[in-house]
Protein backbone atom coordinates (compact mmCIF):
# COMPACT_ATOMS: atom_id res chain seq x y z
CA UNK A 1 0.00 0.00 0.00
CA UNK A 2 0.97 3.64 -0.41
CA UNK A 3 1.15 5.39 2.94
CA UNK A 4 0.86 9.02 3.88
CA UNK A 5 0.33 11.40 6.75
CA UNK A 6 -1.81 14.47 6.96
CA UNK A 7 0.00 17.78 6.71
CA UNK A 8 -0.23 20.14 9.70
CA UNK A 9 -3.51 22.02 9.80
CA UNK A 10 -1.81 25.42 9.61
CA UNK A 11 -0.09 24.44 6.38
CA UNK A 12 -3.38 23.20 4.92
CA UNK A 13 -5.18 26.41 5.98
CA UNK A 14 -2.51 28.48 4.31
CA UNK A 15 -2.80 26.52 1.05
CA UNK A 16 -6.59 26.81 0.89
CA UNK A 17 -6.71 30.44 2.06
CA UNK A 18 -7.35 31.92 -1.43
CA UNK A 19 -10.44 29.76 -2.02
CA UNK A 20 -14.06 30.06 -0.94
CA UNK A 21 -15.67 26.81 -2.08
CA UNK A 22 -13.58 23.81 -1.30
CA UNK A 23 -14.15 20.11 -1.87
CA UNK A 24 -12.25 17.95 0.59
CA UNK A 25 -11.65 14.78 -1.38
CA UNK A 26 -10.75 11.48 0.28
CA UNK A 27 -9.69 8.15 -1.17
CA UNK A 28 -10.97 4.87 0.20
CA UNK A 29 -7.97 2.81 -0.89
CA UNK A 30 -4.39 2.87 0.42
CA UNK A 31 -4.63 6.11 2.36
CA UNK A 32 -7.75 4.78 4.08
CA UNK A 33 -5.84 1.68 5.18
CA UNK A 34 -3.16 3.87 6.71
CA UNK A 35 -5.78 6.14 8.31
CA UNK A 36 -4.59 9.25 6.49
CA UNK A 37 -7.16 10.00 3.83
CA UNK A 38 -10.12 7.59 3.99
CA UNK A 39 -13.73 8.54 4.52
CA UNK A 40 -13.25 8.99 8.26
CA UNK A 41 -10.18 11.19 7.99
CA UNK A 42 -11.78 13.21 5.21
CA UNK A 43 -14.80 13.92 7.40
CA UNK A 44 -12.54 14.87 10.30
CA UNK A 45 -10.45 17.24 8.23
CA UNK A 46 -13.51 18.87 6.66
CA UNK A 47 -15.15 19.34 10.05
CA UNK A 48 -11.95 20.75 11.54
CA UNK A 49 -11.55 23.20 8.66
CA UNK A 50 -15.18 24.32 8.93
CA UNK A 51 -14.74 24.95 12.65
CA UNK A 52 -11.54 26.88 12.06
CA UNK A 53 -13.29 28.97 9.41
CA UNK A 54 -16.23 29.71 11.70
CA UNK A 55 -13.91 30.72 14.51
CA UNK A 56 -12.21 33.20 12.19
CA UNK A 57 -15.50 34.37 10.74
CA UNK A 58 -14.54 33.26 7.25
CA UNK A 59 -17.37 32.77 4.82
CA UNK A 60 -16.40 29.57 3.06
CA UNK A 61 -18.10 26.43 1.87
CA UNK A 62 -16.27 23.26 2.77
CA UNK A 63 -17.79 19.96 1.69
CA UNK A 64 -16.43 16.46 1.53
CA UNK A 65 -16.52 13.42 -0.66
CA UNK A 66 -14.55 10.22 -0.76
CA UNK A 67 -13.83 8.28 -3.95
CA UNK A 68 -13.21 4.53 -3.96
CA UNK A 69 -9.90 5.18 -5.72
CA UNK A 70 -8.61 8.61 -6.49
CA UNK A 71 -5.89 7.32 -8.80
CA UNK A 72 -8.26 5.56 -11.21
CA UNK A 73 -9.99 7.65 -13.85
CA UNK A 74 -13.15 5.53 -13.74
CA UNK A 75 -13.70 6.80 -10.22
CA UNK A 76 -12.35 10.32 -10.67
CA UNK A 77 -14.89 10.89 -13.44
CA UNK A 78 -17.60 10.69 -10.76
CA UNK A 79 -16.60 14.23 -9.80
CA UNK A 80 -17.82 15.44 -13.15
CA UNK A 81 -21.28 16.35 -11.86
CA UNK A 82 -20.20 18.25 -8.79
CA UNK A 83 -16.82 19.77 -9.46
CA UNK A 84 -18.14 22.99 -10.95
CA UNK A 85 -19.50 23.94 -7.57
CA UNK A 86 -16.00 24.33 -6.14
CA UNK A 87 -13.10 26.62 -6.78
CA UNK A 88 -10.52 24.23 -5.28
CA UNK A 89 -10.11 20.57 -4.35
CA UNK A 90 -8.22 19.63 -1.21
CA UNK A 91 -7.16 16.05 -1.82
CA UNK A 92 -6.32 13.46 0.80
CA UNK A 93 -5.21 11.07 -1.92
CA UNK A 94 -1.60 10.06 -2.38
CA UNK A 95 0.50 11.95 -4.90
CA UNK A 96 -0.89 9.72 -7.64
CA UNK A 97 -4.46 10.50 -6.63
CA UNK A 98 -3.82 14.23 -6.52
CA UNK A 99 -2.34 14.12 -10.00
CA UNK A 100 -5.08 11.93 -11.43
CA UNK A 101 -7.64 14.52 -10.34
CA UNK A 102 -5.48 17.39 -11.60
CA UNK A 103 -5.06 15.67 -14.95
CA UNK A 104 -8.77 15.19 -15.40
CA UNK A 105 -10.03 18.54 -14.13
CA UNK A 106 -7.58 21.05 -15.46
CA UNK A 107 -9.64 24.10 -14.51
CA UNK A 108 -9.66 23.48 -10.75
CA UNK A 109 -6.63 23.85 -8.49
CA UNK A 110 -5.86 20.61 -6.60
CA UNK A 111 -4.15 20.96 -3.23
CA UNK A 112 -2.47 18.07 -1.42
CA UNK A 113 -3.57 17.60 2.20
CA UNK A 114 -1.27 14.69 2.92
CA UNK A 115 2.40 13.99 2.48
CA UNK A 116 2.79 10.73 0.59
CA UNK A 117 5.38 8.63 2.39
CA UNK A 118 6.22 5.14 1.22
CA UNK A 119 5.22 1.72 -0.08
CA UNK A 120 4.69 -0.22 3.06
CA UNK A 121 2.84 -2.74 5.11
CA UNK A 122 0.53 -2.49 8.09
CA UNK A 123 2.66 -4.22 10.70
CA UNK A 124 0.14 -3.69 13.46
CA UNK A 125 -2.81 -1.45 14.19
CA UNK A 126 -1.57 2.09 13.88
CA UNK A 127 1.91 0.96 12.76
CA UNK A 128 3.12 1.09 9.18
CA UNK A 129 6.60 0.36 7.87
CA UNK A 130 8.38 0.97 4.61
CA UNK A 131 9.20 -2.22 2.78
CA UNK A 132 9.51 -1.51 -0.95
CA UNK A 133 11.14 1.15 -3.12
CA UNK A 134 9.51 0.03 -6.35
CA UNK A 135 12.93 -0.50 -7.92
CA UNK A 136 11.52 -2.39 -10.88
CA UNK A 137 13.83 -5.37 -10.41
CA UNK A 138 12.80 -7.42 -7.40
CA UNK A 139 15.62 -9.30 -5.63
CA UNK A 140 13.75 -10.49 -2.55
CA UNK A 141 14.38 -14.16 -3.33
CA UNK A 142 18.10 -13.63 -2.75
CA UNK A 143 17.65 -12.03 0.63
CA UNK A 144 15.20 -14.20 2.50
CA UNK A 145 12.25 -12.01 1.69
CA UNK A 146 13.77 -8.90 3.28
CA UNK A 147 14.62 -6.01 0.97
CA UNK A 148 18.03 -4.43 1.59
CA UNK A 149 17.32 -1.69 -0.93
CA UNK A 150 14.27 -0.44 0.93
CA UNK A 151 15.20 -1.39 4.48
CA UNK A 152 18.98 -0.94 4.80
CA UNK A 153 19.79 2.72 5.49
CA UNK A 154 22.71 2.51 3.07
CA UNK A 155 20.97 0.29 0.50
CA UNK A 156 23.79 -2.23 0.72
CA UNK A 157 23.51 -5.29 -1.46
CA UNK A 158 26.54 -6.75 0.30
CA UNK A 159 25.85 -5.87 3.91
CA UNK A 160 25.80 -5.53 6.81
CA UNK A 161 27.95 -2.45 7.27
CA UNK A 162 30.13 -2.07 10.33
CA UNK A 163 27.61 0.01 12.22
CA UNK A 164 24.97 -2.42 13.38
CA UNK A 165 24.93 -3.45 17.02
CA UNK A 166 22.57 -5.95 18.62
CA UNK A 167 20.59 -6.11 15.42
CA UNK A 168 19.92 -2.37 15.42
CA UNK A 169 20.77 0.10 12.68
CA UNK A 170 23.36 2.76 13.47
CA UNK A 171 21.09 5.56 12.36
CA UNK A 172 18.51 4.83 15.05
CA UNK A 173 18.21 2.07 17.63
CA UNK A 174 14.49 1.86 16.84
CA UNK A 175 15.36 0.67 13.36
CA UNK A 176 16.12 -3.01 12.93
CA UNK A 177 19.21 -3.73 10.84
CA UNK A 178 17.81 -5.22 7.63
CA UNK A 179 21.04 -7.11 7.10
CA UNK A 180 20.90 -8.63 10.56
CA UNK A 181 17.40 -9.86 9.70
CA UNK A 182 18.65 -11.21 6.37
CA UNK A 183 21.56 -13.04 7.99
CA UNK A 184 19.27 -14.52 10.68
CA UNK A 185 16.71 -15.64 8.17
CA UNK A 186 19.16 -17.20 5.74
CA UNK A 187 20.86 -18.94 8.66
CA UNK A 188 17.49 -20.45 9.54
CA UNK A 189 17.11 -21.72 5.96
CA UNK A 190 20.67 -23.04 5.98
CA UNK A 191 21.37 -20.70 3.09
CA UNK A 192 23.86 -18.29 4.60
CA UNK A 193 26.51 -19.35 2.08
CA UNK A 194 24.44 -17.50 -0.51
CA UNK A 195 25.78 -14.29 0.97
CA UNK A 196 29.31 -15.26 0.03
CA UNK A 197 28.33 -14.11 -3.46
CA UNK A 198 29.19 -10.57 -4.35
CA UNK A 199 25.98 -9.03 -5.59
CA UNK A 200 26.78 -6.71 -8.49
CA UNK A 201 25.73 -3.05 -8.68
CA UNK A 202 22.01 -2.67 -9.06
CA UNK A 203 20.51 -1.73 -12.41
CA UNK A 204 18.79 1.52 -11.53
CA UNK A 205 17.74 2.08 -15.12
CA UNK A 206 14.78 -0.13 -14.24
CA UNK A 207 13.65 2.56 -11.84
CA UNK A 208 14.78 5.83 -13.31
CA UNK A 209 16.17 5.05 -16.74
CA UNK A 210 13.39 6.55 -18.81
CA UNK A 211 11.81 9.22 -16.70
CA UNK A 212 8.41 8.40 -15.18
CA UNK A 213 7.67 4.74 -15.68
CA UNK A 214 4.61 3.30 -17.33
CA UNK A 215 3.20 -0.14 -17.85
CA UNK A 216 1.31 -0.83 -21.07
CA UNK A 217 -0.70 -4.04 -21.30
CA UNK A 218 -2.65 -4.55 -24.48
CA UNK A 219 -4.47 -7.56 -23.08
CA UNK A 220 -5.97 -5.28 -20.46
CA UNK A 221 -7.09 -2.66 -22.90
CA UNK A 222 -10.49 -2.30 -24.51
Amino acid sequence: MITGEQKPIDEIREMIAPYKRILVLGCASCVAECAAGGEKETAMLASTLRMAAKMKGEDVLIEEKTLDRQCVRDFVILLDDIIEKYDAVLSLGCGAGVQAVAEMFTEVPIIPAINTEFLGETRDQGYWVESCLGCGDCMLHHFGGICPVARCSKQLLNGPCGGSMDGRCEINPDVKCAWHLIVDRLTKFGALDRLENIYPPKDWSRKQGGGPRKIVREDQQK
Binding site: P8, I9, D10, M44, T48, M51, A52, M55
Partner: peptide, 8 residues
Protein backbone atom coordinates in the same frame (compact mmCIF):
# COMPACT_ATOMS: atom_id res chain seq x y z
CA UNK B 1 -4.76 17.58 19.46
CA UNK B 2 -6.93 18.36 16.43
CA UNK B 3 -8.96 21.08 18.14
CA UNK B 4 -5.82 22.52 19.71
CA UNK B 5 -4.38 22.85 16.18
CA UNK B 6 -7.14 25.31 15.27
CA UNK B 7 -6.94 27.16 18.58
CA UNK B 8 -9.89 25.60 20.38
Amino acid sequence: AIIASIGL
